[in-house]
Design a protein around this nucleic acid. Structure first.
Lengths: 124, 124
DNA sequence: GAGTTATATTCCCCTGGAGGAATGTAGTTG
DNA sequence: CAACTACATTCCTCCAGGGGAATATAACTC
């Protein structure tokens, strides 16, 4: 994983928003759709882009795909550093703050991700 | 200056190397050419790209163009944070370390940038 | 002014990738 | 099994931008 590739992953706003949300923990695609309010194909393709390049992992749970930041990313210091930097940089940004707010609403309205994993039901 | 645009500037290796060198201080184009060992047009176009987007400034000193990171970039916290992150990330990288080593050799072999400014002679 | 140096710009070709409509696929539910 | 849900993939179009050859420009030198 070269540094340039990390930046290539970060140079699209949709992907920035996806990664930013993932800093909160694993999420399924319907979460992203609900929070970003973007077409399914767009979300899916950007997640695929990130997955291909190793910035996220995906695991199927029944009908849902759970995306997460890679476990053990302490071993990818460049990624870790840039994600931390990203989180700092967007702290005051309206779009990203709104995303976070929507995510929290979802976590109340929908079953949280743990429930998804446990029961295979109750996502969005 | 939006965050995505910063990442767009960072997502090319040549530009990463240019910015990394500029963290050492202002430099003229011939420095970049000598250190990166890339065609003049390539260097010049990437510097133009960065300049257009406000990541570097340029000032003419006689025959030479002096490029530098923008003064007062403390007021662009995202840029500042990402440049710091970049410097961290490349600390152990062979290409970037070699660039730095070459730059230091140049600073011995050529007149340093202060001399360029003072006399208008003695660059590369 | 002619020549030279340092740098920028223009022209070309070519690839990556963004966006979206339509379709495919895996898993679940009844 | 059929129907449905959640998601991925394929096809298309379009454009930014990377690389290089050639040319232009700006400033200095003589």
């Amino acid at each position: 994983m070269k540094l340039v590739q990390i930046y290539q992953c970060l140079c699209d706003e949709t992907r920035l928003r996806l990664l930013h949300l993932l800093l909160q923990g694993p999420l399924c695609v319907c979460h992203f759709q609900a929070v970003l309010n973007e077409p399914q194909v767009k979300i899916s393709k950007h997640l695929g882009y990130l997955k291909t390049r190793g910035l996220v992992t995906a695991s199927r749970q029944g009908n849902w795909m759970i995306y997460a930041l890679p476990a053990g990313r302490e071993r990818m210091p460049e990624l870790e550093a840039n994600l931390a930097c990203l989180q700092d940089c967007v702290a005051g940004n309206a779009v990203f703050k709104r995303d976070l707010a929507r995510l929290r609403k979802l976590d109340l309205a929908c079953a949280p991700i743990e429930a998804v994993r446990g029961t295979g039901r109750g996502c969005c």
